[in-house]
Structure formats: structure tokens, C-alpha cells
Amino acid sequence: MGPFLLVTIQIDLYDRLALNLETDLVNMVHKTGARGVLIDISAVSIVDSFMGRILGNIASMTRVLDAETVVVGMQPAVAITLIELGLSLTGVHTALDVERGMALLQSKLDPDEELANDNDNDVE
């Protein structure tokens, strides 16, 4: 894992839980000095405007603490719905799955290494 936090959201969150996640994660980044946060939402069946805002907040807040956030595993139906709803998750890095998300975080930490290893389709 290295200097990254991996968070897997296993259930659909109501608003209070999502806000708690935001606070806990930001505290955790501060406490551990993590350089990246990977949020796996593959088990999340809907992302509405509130959840979208929380993901955006987490990305902005961790960035201020010098950690990048990548959201991975979004289901296709969720992606379709998000865009029609009008949310484009601007400022939030996304990747198809955990593996690619990790590669993206690694590349942000060490851009030179990424150049040497990068031979698959990039996610950005």
C-alpha cells in the first residue's frame, strides 16, 4: 500500500454517514501523512448530488493536505446518471479500478517513474 489510504465504501451512505466519512478521511490523512487516498465506490449503487459534493470536498480537502484523491470502480449506470444529473465531478481524479487508481496515485507521487512505466491507457 505504501503511503496511500484505501477506503472501500461497502454500503449506500445516508448524508450524515457521508459527512462522517469526509471528516474521518481528512483526519486520517493528517494523522498518517498519507500522500494519496483511493476511494473504491464499486459497491455504491447511486451517487446523487450530495454524495458527489462529498467526493469533491474530500478531493479538495486532501489536496490542501498534500494528498491526491482518486475515486475508482464507479458502476456504468452511476456514471450515466451522474452526468445527466449535471455532476461532472470536476477536480476529482477517477480510475477504472483499484489497480489503475494505485498506478495513478503512484504517478502523481513520482512523475518520472510513471513516464518510464507507463504503457497502458492512461486514465486522466
Binding site: 448524508d15 449503487s45 447511486i46 451517487v47 446523487d48 448530488s49 450530495f50 458502476q75 456504468p76 449506470a77 452511476v78 450515466i80 446518471t81 445527466e84 444529473l85
Partner: peptide
């Protein structure tokens, strides 16, 4: 279907909030 379900439930979630 799953896409329409997701749209409906997301819409419902916005309105109930």
C-alpha cells in the same frame, strides 16, 4: 433495467433530501 433504476433512485434520493 439497471440504468433506468439508477436514474429513478437517484432522482428519488434528491427529492427526499
Amino acid at each position: 433495467g439497471l440504468v433506468n433504476q439508477t436514474k429513478l433512485i437517484t432522482a428519488a434520493s434528491e427529492l427526499v433530501r
